[in-house]
Structures are given as structure tokens and as C-alpha cells.
Design a protein around this nucleic acid. Sequence first.
DNA 1: GCATAATTCGAACGTTCGTTCGGAGTTCAT
DNA 2: ATGAACTCCGAACGAACGTTCGAATTATGC
Lengths: 214, 214
Amino acid sequence: MPAVAPKLSPAPDSKADSKYDRRLSEILAHATQVFFEKGYQGASMRDLSRVSGMSLAGLYHYFDCKEKLLYLIQKHTFATIVDHLQERLKGVTHAEQRMRIFIRNHLEYFLANQQAMKVLSHEGNLLTGDYGAEVAEIKREYYRVCASLVDDLHRAKGLELPTRSASRIAVLSLFGMINWIYTWHNPKSDADASALAQQMGDIFLNGITKSARS
Amino acid sequence: MPAVAPKLSPAPDSKADSKYDRRLSEILAHATQVFFEKGYQGASMRDLSRVSGMSLAGLYHYFDCKEKLLYLIQKHTFATIVDHLQERLKGVTHAEQRMRIFIRNHLEYFLANQQAMKVLSHEGNLLTGDYGAEVAEIKREYYRVCASLVDDLHRAKGLELPTRSASRIAVLSLFGMINWIYTWHNPKSDADASALAQQMGDIFLNGITKSARS
DNA sequence: GCATAATTCGAACGTTCGTTCGGAGTTCAT
DNA sequence: ATGAACTCCGAACGAACGTTCGAATTATGC
């Protein structure tokens, strides 16, 4: 009876995860590594089997199909980054600080979870149907949070609010700056997350709050 | 005798391209479309066969293997964008104008050749061996041009030169801003290239030339 | 210790992949 | 008209793909 959650945990579900859930997490970690290295479409289930030390058939006890692996990775990664963000924004009211927190949160998580974040960024438009819709909804929420931080910053500075189009470009430019790092960042030789957050924050905040140029 | 350039053109090679070259260009255009829609690894030669209206075997008269298609697309696209840039920079000396030209050139080409540019951006690290090295070299040259424009801008403004690390982050942030647009830009509803170049230029130029924030 | 359920696997399923082969049709200078 | 070169294709190659199946193995509750 493959790919069905266990009927009942030992006695209580006191432990956060059952053995089944823990095993699935291990597999997802290995899948993240494989997708990171070869891309979702370039990675085969046999690659995953080799890396995770489990037989091809054994893997399918824990999920229905390859696509679900990508869905689980993307959803968990994205949900976690949003959770962290909400936590760090709590209690902070200063508009620029809030914007800085957004940038630092994204960058820190990105560099601490490079593989998962590349899978999220690079394969961001691959899922279709219900899986795709669910991830897209989280993405849209994340976008809205950032857009309102940008608006708040303008209000706090007494600047006129950007048009919807200008605000959209600003937010997506920021996402581009940050998400692009998976294509170039080398942890051994490049700046760490806080230095990156500082410099990219400078560029973005100076960029959107100083008046247009001559 | 497949995949060999014709021995002699009709009489003179007055026409820039032989029939063979023109046919190959058509195939590359179709391949660009297919790679754009399904990704390089997700696209099959049978997809290309269907789209280009040519038999599977017939295609192989014009190239050795699938990988060469990606190489030809990437090399031609990248070389063209660099050529355009050199042309437009010619004779312009004002540092900020030169930086603006770089941004506008990249964005205009990006939006005018969305499919090819997505194939270049999204599959940017897929090629290996000699093909990969050749594309990587063009990329490095393009990077160096942009980095020196940033340095020139600082000199012209009497600002102290950024460290190598800061300049690297600035340039790659700019690339991120621009290259990321293939993930979100909708030609029907989003701003056109010159409006995008104006706003992204504002963000980037304000961002790197105003002093660090409070 | 025993029945039940959860976990794992070897082997195979049918499909699709990139690529090749021999030959048929076409073009063109002579 | 003829032969050489170019262009194109139907059919097939072996390999790899995602997935499934029945059985073996291991863990669990009683």
C-alpha cells in the first residue's frame, strides 16, 4: 500500500513527525540535492535512488510521482521563508528597518539553503495544475508583502506613492537582484549574507527613495 | 554526408548565407521557440521536428547533436547583444549616458528577443566542455564591460572607486534585475523596454552613486 | 510467538529519448 | 542527359525514462 500516511502513530502523536515523515524528509533533502545539481527535468529517479541509497521502487512508497517531490520541496521552502519573515517583522515598525529585514531574511535563507532556493528559483514555473497554483499563491502573497513594504517606505519618507507599475518594477527588480545570486554566488569567495544584504539593501533603498536623476 | 557545410556556394558567395545557412537559421529559430516553451532538457527532438515541420532524421543534416543547437543559439544571441552594445557605445563619452546605454541595450534586446534571451538566461550553465567554455568567455567579456562602466561612473562623479567585491555585487545585481524579467514580464500588460530601462536605470544609478544611507 | 501492517526490493512494464542508417528525391554544372 | 552533390525521410537502434507489481523483509501490537 504505497504512498499512504501511516494509519495511527504509536500511541500519541507527541513526536512532531512519525518515522514515515522523517524518512520522507530525508528523501526530500536528497531530491533537493539532485534537482539542484541536474535540474528537475535533467534529474532521473535513478539518480535520486543512487544518492539516497534506496531502491527505485522503495522510493515510491513515500510519494506518488516525481512532480510531487518538486511540489513538496517548493512549498516547504517557500512557506518556511515566509514564516521566518513574519516572525522577524513582528514588532518592528520603522519602515526602512522593515524593508531591510525583508532583504536580509531573503538573502540569509537563500545562502543558508542554496540548493532548495535554486530549485525554487530555477524551476519556479514548472509545476502546473493544482500543485502549480498552490505554489503560485504563496509567491503572490510574498510579492504583496514586499510591495506593501515599498509603499510604506514611501509614505514614511513623505514621498509620493509610486504608481502600481513603478512599484511592480521595483519589487520585481529586487527579487531579480536577490534570486539571481544562485547563478553566481560562491560561498568560498563571495561576501556572506549580511554583507550582501547591506550592499543590495543600499542599492535598492537608495534606488527607490532618491528622487529621479538629472 | 550529414552536418557538413556545403563545399562550394553556387558561384560567388555574394549572398551572405548559402541556402544551407538559411535553413539552419530557420531550424535554430524553431529550436529557440521549443527550448523557450519546454526548457532545453524538457524539449525533445521530436518536439522540434513537429514545430519545424521537418523529419527527425532530416534535422540532423544541419547539426551534430541537440547540445550543439543550444550552443549555436546561445553564442549567436550573446554575440549579437555584445555587438549592438559596442555599436551604441561608440562615440559616447559621458559616463552616466554610457551606463544608461548599457541598460537600455540589454533590456531592448531582451524584450525584442524574449525567447532567445530566456534560453540564454535560464539554460546559462547547462553547456559543458568546449561549448560551455566559449559561451562563458563571452559572458565574462560582457561582465568586464559592465564593470568598467561602473568604475568609470564612479570616477566621473568623483566618488571613490568601489572595492572589487562591491563592484562585483553591483554588476551582478544589475544583471539579476534585468535577466530576471523573463520570469515575469508580460508584453501585453507590462511597461516597454524604454520605460523599464528608465526605471531600472534610476534604481541602479541612484543605488550605486548616492552615498550609503543613515 | 504470532498475526498484521509498514517498509523495501528485484524485475519488469510500456514509452520516449537522442541518434543513425540506407536510400529516395532534388538540384545543378556540364 | 548524366553523374555528383545536396537535401530529406521512414524506420529502426539501444539506452534511459517514470512507474508498477508481487514478493521478501522488517517492525509493531498483542
